[in-house]
């Protein structure tokens, strides 16, 4: 494993992945549960590890996300990612949600250096260490793919 920044020692790598924010959102996920009414909903599934969730959105006629929730089961990374995503999306326009999806995807694939490039990720940068664990990237992005699927009116999204 090469780390060009030279700052990632033993403890830090994992701390970057299992940060307190992630542990806390895993334990107390926000916007967790069914959402009624909703205008958009999709199911996300990672057959490899069994992570399974639903994302529901209520979007008004102006294209603003009034409410968003998730339900389901998964690892700490996937649950915390879903929880933080719902917080980030509330009040955003559909175009902004799509833009955030793209920024988040680039972040966790290390296509973006969030410290240097302008972005709108805010708290979501806690996931910037995920790229070091390729087998876990899908956990972090499952909720986002599911959200995008809901916007695109897909019923089911699979990360395989």
């Amino acid at each position: 494993m090469t780390d060009t920044s030279g700052t990632a020692g033993h403890g830090r790598d994992i701390d970057e992945l299992y940060q307190q924010v992630i542990i806390e959102h895993n334990r107390h996920p926000r916007n967790f549960g069914a959402l009624e009414p909703h205008t958009h909903r999709a199911e996300g599934y990672n057959p490899l590890c069994g992570d399974h969730l639903f994302v529901s959105l209520n979007i008004d006629e102006q294209g603003t996300i009034q409410a968003v929730s998730f339900e389901g089961d998964g690892c700490a990374i996937s649950k915390a990612s879903a929880s933080l995503m719902t917080m980030a999306l509330k009040g955003k326009k559909i175009e902004e949600a799509r833009m955030l999806f793209d920024e988040f995807r680039r972040l966790i694939l290390k296509e973006m250096d969030a410290a240097r490039e302008p972005n709108h990720l805010g708290k979501l940068t806690v996931f910037s260490g995920v790229w070091k664990y390729p087998s876990r990237v899908k956990c972090a992005i499952l909720a986002w793919h599911t959200m995008k699927g809901a916007l695109d009116n897909a019923k089911t999204v699979s990360t395989e």
Binding site: D13, I14, L17, Y18, C75, A76, Y133, R136
Partner: peptide
């Protein structure tokens, strides 16, 4: 209630 994949990643470390 720790998910197996979280255990796996932490042990891998």
């Amino acid at each position: 209630d720790i998910h197996a994949h979280d255990i796996g990643t932490l042990l891998d470390r």
